[in-house]
Amino acid sequence: MKSNKFLLEILAIVLVLSVIPALVRQQYILHVIMLAMIFGIVASNWNLAIGYGGMFHLAQVPFFAAGGYSTAILSVHMGLSPLIGILVGGVAAVILSLIIGIPALRVRGIYLVFLTFAFHFIMLSLVLYFVDITGGDMGLILEPIRIGATNIDMFNPVVTYYTALSLFVLSLVFIKTIIDSKIGLALVSLRDSEVYAVSRGINPYKIKLVTFVLSSFLAGVCGAFYVHYLRVVTPALFDWSFLITFLASIVIGGVGTLYGPLLGAFILTFLMESLRFLEMFRNIVFGLLMILILIFMPKGLIMLANRAQSIFSSRQNSAGIVDEEN
């Protein structure tokens, strides 16, 4: 019954998003939607750790960048096919998440923020230093992903758009599966009451590590897709603007909800594009908006959508499952 509802929701999203290329002729719009989808995927996977797992960390940008740089370096220096590179990006992010997660998840709260923050800076220093491998400040110029004879790049916006859309759907299913699995249930019970969860035999460290690692995979895949789509990789992948975009997507959309970060990424990306006329005042408006949303709409805009339409009631949905278990 519930999975049927999810299926309907997915179908609705796919339907809406897949007719867009037929309606708009401007590559600009397709590009912005693609960015929204990519950012949405990274944000919603991060949300798995932040919102569901209660682990506030800053490693999502390093995961994203690790994905981008691993495929870039391997394809430039060893001729790896970018199509495989996408997967390699995901694997690289997973490896990094293990390196960070195994020691780091033993510490909690603000310490986890600091730890992941330090990793971010060390990785950036390495990228900037080893110019021969990473291209340093100049970055690397890449080949596009090829499927058969078709290039997935700027020149084929529609094909690229559908590739991003498939990733988007994949991510949705991936996250939904995790949330509904034993891991997801354990996470929610850990978040709500750790003492109770531990008494029921849940190992918090193990569950958190698994979630942390799972949430890194698609961030790495997206990083790899992103750099091959734009055909360049630069240290800008470590920019704070990415961290702020991902984080803001989660906050604007709704922490700990399935659709929140995706909605947030779409709203944020389109809002920032349509506010371009503000020129230098754009970031100030953005900052104010973030603060206002945090204060007046702490559960994010998804709550408005929830109220308006019960179709998007994913939060109640997952909560409902927990109740049944109990």
Binding site: D239, E273, R282
Partner: peptide, 15 residues
């Protein structure tokens, strides 16, 4: 505004 000339941002602006 291209902010920091990040590739995705530059692409948005030029398109």
């Amino acid at each position: 505004d291209t902010v920091d000339q990040e590739a995705g941002m530059i692409t948005s602006v030029f398109l």
